[in-house]
Amino acid sequence: MGNKIKKLFKIEYPIVQAGMVWNSGWRLASAASNSGILGLIGAGSMYPEVLREHIQKCKKATSKPFGVNVPMLYPDIEKIMDVIVEEGVKIVFTSAGNPKTWTRWLQDKGITVVHVVSSVKFAVKAQEAGVDAIVAEGFEAGGHNGRNETTTLTLIPMVKEKIRVPLIAAGGIATGRAMLACMVLGANGVQIGSRFVASEESSAHEAFKKAVVGAKEGDTELTLKELAPVRLLKNKFYNNIQDLYKRCASVDELKELLGRARAKKGMFEGDLDEGELEIGQIAGLIHYIKPVQIIVEEIIAEFEEAKSRVGDM
């Protein structure tokens, strides 16, 4: 029968490079696709015409399948979707919104639709909306996350129990061993984000990449649940958030501190003090900045080795 994710996306390995804001431009997406996995352009940090430029450059840089990740809470969503259709993108990952809004519209135009969820409840809703596959993302993941704090280890088998469509695991995955563990739990493939932030092709600022590889266990925390839960690397901005919490700050005060373009300031411009540094807990296991091709080769080699050891057990 073969692997459902490899078949769905026509890729060599059942791995998706996550479409992360300020990290996932055309260079990362094309490098990921050229390495045999599915590369995603992260549209969340792009104006429509900037996205168009990235799609066009990605098409020139790879002949292999790639897609676009679209957080639906962002403005200009209609223009973003129009650009995706006009440029002939065949795979779209949606998140942060109701999958019913765009799934059928995209599928009617020949586009494969995957929706990202952080709970069983929303996995079932995504399946009911008719998506082609689901990404279930555990609490360990970087960036915006679910409020329930359900870990990948428990989320994947619970989602698998309730859905029939192909399942992609995300959150805390950066190694072949973790990939194998998620597939044993019921996933058909994995989505990896943080590991690819610390790649040569990532559009993240070099200072942020170095902060990621320098991170240790406990250096990230999920915060700002009153606005949109986000996992951050601890820095001055994070400490300022905690100071507000100690004073029982209002939602408006939190919004005022967050302001605008805080994520761009941190991840793209490299302000490690005042920027929003979104990264997963697995950063504590990421020690080197490497080319995407090497990262993928290492993950697959470790996956095969781990699978062999499990067989011996």
Score class of each variant (00 low, 15 high):
Gly2Pro: 11
Asn3Glu: 06
Lys6Pro: 07
Lys7Glu: 15
Lys7Arg: 10
Leu8Thr: 03
Ile11Glu: 08
Glu12Ala: 11
Met20Pro: 04
Val21Arg: 13
Trp22Gln: 01
Gly25Lys: 03
Gly25Asp: 12
Trp26Met: 12
Leu28Lys: 00
Gly36Met: 12
Gly36Tyr: 12
Leu38Lys: 05
Leu40Lys: 01
Ile41Leu: 05
Gly42Pro: 05
Met46Ile: 10
Met46Tyr: 13
Met46Lys: 14
Arg52Val: 08
Arg52Ser: 09
His54Leu: 07
Ile55Tyr: 14
Lys59Thr: 11
Ala61Lys: 11
Thr62Asn: 06
Lys64Asp: 12
Phe66Ile: 11
Val70Lys: 05
Glu78Tyr: 08
Lys79Tyr: 06
Lys79Asp: 14
Ile80Ala: 04
Ile80Leu: 13
Val83Asp: 10
Val85Tyr: 09
Glu86Phe: 11
Lys90Arg: 15
Ile91Val: 14
Thr94Phe: 11
Ser95Asn: 08
Gly97His: 14
Arg104Cys: 07
Asp108Gly: 10
Lys109Cys: 03
Ile111Ser: 04
Thr112Met: 02
Thr112Phe: 06
His115Tyr: 03
Val116His: 12
Val117Arg: 00
Ser118Thr: 10
Ser119Tyr: 02
Lys121Asn: 08
Lys121Asp: 04
Phe122Met: 14
Ala123Trp: 01
Val124Glu: 02
Val124Asp: 00
Gly130Ile: 12
Gly130Lys: 00
Val131Lys: 01
Ala133Cys: 02
Gly138Phe: 01
Gly138Met: 06
Gly142Ile: 09
Leu153Asp: 03
Leu153Ala: 05
Ile156Ala: 00
Glu161Lys: 14
Pro166Phe: 02
Ala170Met: 08
Ala170Trp: 09
Gly171Tyr: 06
Arg177Ser: 07
Ala178His: 10
Cys182Trp: 04
Met183Thr: 07
Ala187His: 02
Ser194Ala: 10
Phe196Asp: 01
Val197Trp: 05
Ala198Trp: 09
Ser199Pro: 06
Ser202Trp: 01
Ser203Glu: 14
Phe208Ile: 04
Lys209Trp: 04
Lys209Tyr: 02
Lys210Tyr: 06
Lys216Gly: 14
Gly218Asp: 02
Thr223Ile: 15
Leu224Lys: 03
Lys225Gly: 11
Glu226Gln: 15
Glu226Ala: 11
Ala228Pro: 04
Pro229Cys: 10
Pro229Ala: 08
Lys236Phe: 07
Asn239Ser: 14
Asp243Tyr: 13
Lys246Gly: 12
Lys246Pro: 08
Arg247Ile: 15
Cys248Ile: 09
Cys248Arg: 15
Asp252Tyr: 10
Glu256Ile: 10
Glu256Gly: 11
Gly259Thr: 11
Arg260Glu: 14
Ala261Asp: 13
Lys265Arg: 13
Gly266Arg: 01
Gly270Arg: 00
Leu272Gly: 07
Asp273Ile: 06
Leu277Asn: 04
Ile279Met: 12
Leu285Gly: 08
Ile286Trp: 01
Lys290Tyr: 13
Pro291Cys: 12
Ile299Tyr: 00
Ile299Lys: 01
Ala301Cys: 07
Ala301Asp: 14
Arg309Ser: 15
Gly311Ile: 09
Asp312Cys: 01
Asp312Met: 07
Met313Ala: 11
